[in-house]
Amino acid sequence: MNDSPGCPLADVAATYGPRLSECSSEPGLVAALDQHEAAVCDALVPARRGARRRAVGREELGDYVLGFTDRLAEVAWVEPAGHDFATLRLTAVCRLIRDHGLLGTAS
């Protein structure tokens, strides 16, 4: 699967993907990532009573990322050295990208 220039998932994976390894050794950050990942999935794929959750799609996750990063730009957010709500959310998006193979390569 080829990525078009400016693909929001490719940009997020390149920027926040390295944070996945930072978070993997800290139990508190792993738990926070789990919660953020669940929140993104719930926003994209609302749970249906008795139904299995379907996989997250590339287009819908890309739309989510565009909306989320547009809001960050509106509030003039600056990425901190540590982990805040936005960096954890974007790092969780990276894990979804990786786990669902949304870039066609390992991220």
Rank of each mutant, 00 (worst) to 15 (best):
P18S: 05
P80Q: 15
T15A: 05
L102C: 04
V75D: 08
S21E: 11
V56I: 15
D3L: 15
A38K: 14
P80C: 13
F85R: 13
R89P: 15
R54M: 11
W77S: 05
C41Y: 04
G57Q: 14
L103F: 07
F85P: 00
R58V: 12
G57P: 13
L102K: 02
A81E: 04
L102V: 02
R19K: 07
R89Q: 14
T69Q: 06
S24L: 10
D34G: 12
A10G: 12
E79I: 02
P80N: 15
P46E: 10
A86E: 10
A55Q: 14
Q35P: 02
R53A: 14
R98Y: 00
G50A: 11
A51Q: 15
E22M: 08
D34M: 07
G17F: 06
P8A: 13
S25M: 09
D34Y: 08
A92E: 00
A81D: 02
H100P: 03
L44F: 10
L29Q: 10
E60L: 05
V65C: 10
H36E: 11
L96K: 03
D11A: 13
A73N: 07
R71L: 12
V45Y: 06
L33V: 13
F68C: 01
V45F: 09
G57F: 03
V30K: 12
R53G: 14
G104Y: 06
A106R: 04
G62W: 12
Q35M: 09
N2F: 15
A39Q: 11
G101P: 00
T91S: 07
L33H: 05
G62T: 12
S107A: 06
A86I: 01
P27H: 00
L96P: 01
D34T: 12
D99G: 05
G67D: 13
T105V: 11
L88Q: 11
T91W: 02
D42S: 15
M1S: 13
L29V: 03
V56D: 14
T91A: 00
T87F: 03
Y16T: 05
R98S: 01
D34S: 12
P8G: 12
A86L: 01
V12H: 08
R53Y: 14
R95C: 02
Y64P: 03
V30F: 07
L90M: 05
T105N: 04
R52N: 09
R95E: 07
G6A: 07
G6D: 13
L96A: 06
A86C: 12
P46Y: 06
